[in-house]
Amino acid sequence: MTPPVLHLANVGKSYPTPAGPVEVLRAVNLQVHAAEFVVITGPSGSGKTTLLSIAGLLDAPSTGTVAFAGKALPQNDERALRHVRSHHIGMIFQRFHLLEHRSVVENVMFRYRYLPHDRADVRRRALALLDEFGLADTADRPARVLSAGERQRVAIARAVVLPPMLLIADEPTGNLDAASADRVMACFRSLHRQGITVMLVTHNLSLCAYATRHLRCVDRGLAEAA
């Protein structure tokens, strides 16, 4: 049996504050299998983004374990975490995090910045992806001149130019108008159809329409939505 792409077992997270530790997540168990489109919803402050950061190996859980593709990842093994992060996880953020002074295609190619690569090949793939996302005309423009919707599509292209095992998105439509949000979600749907596993966090319940599985962040834990 194929192991889940991501397996969180009894994951808890608390932050130290002057008034004592604040618990954000408690004993969260989650398995995300290949080709799933998981949407996690919940109100602000319910721990969605923290959960996503732990899933994306950007933050370490206070308790519990994280396994990726069946392999447990010790949180002190920075090298292994970095390897999985750079090779197998694509991340998309609410605020896009593009390099404003670089061109669109350079932003997409930046996915390979810390990986050995053939520049010409990566550029060809980046341009093909931009074409697929309707951004071919903007390839050589600086990222700062793009609209919010275009920026988010560039961010998606950057995340998937190296096909990831898991694509994680944190409120990808949070800063977009309805039309742009639809175009961005169309990109996600297209990627999911190509077999990419997607894990998306949002407070926008309408995005659940794209999901194969809907989870809710409640009471510092996760629950399957009805």
Partner: peptide, 16 residues
């Protein structure tokens, strides 16, 4: 800071 975060998410080490 966001750029540094992005670089770390793409595989940059602390040394990088």
């Amino acid at each position: 800071i966001p750029e540094i975060g992005l670089r770390r998410s793409l595989g940059a080490s602390r040394a990088d």
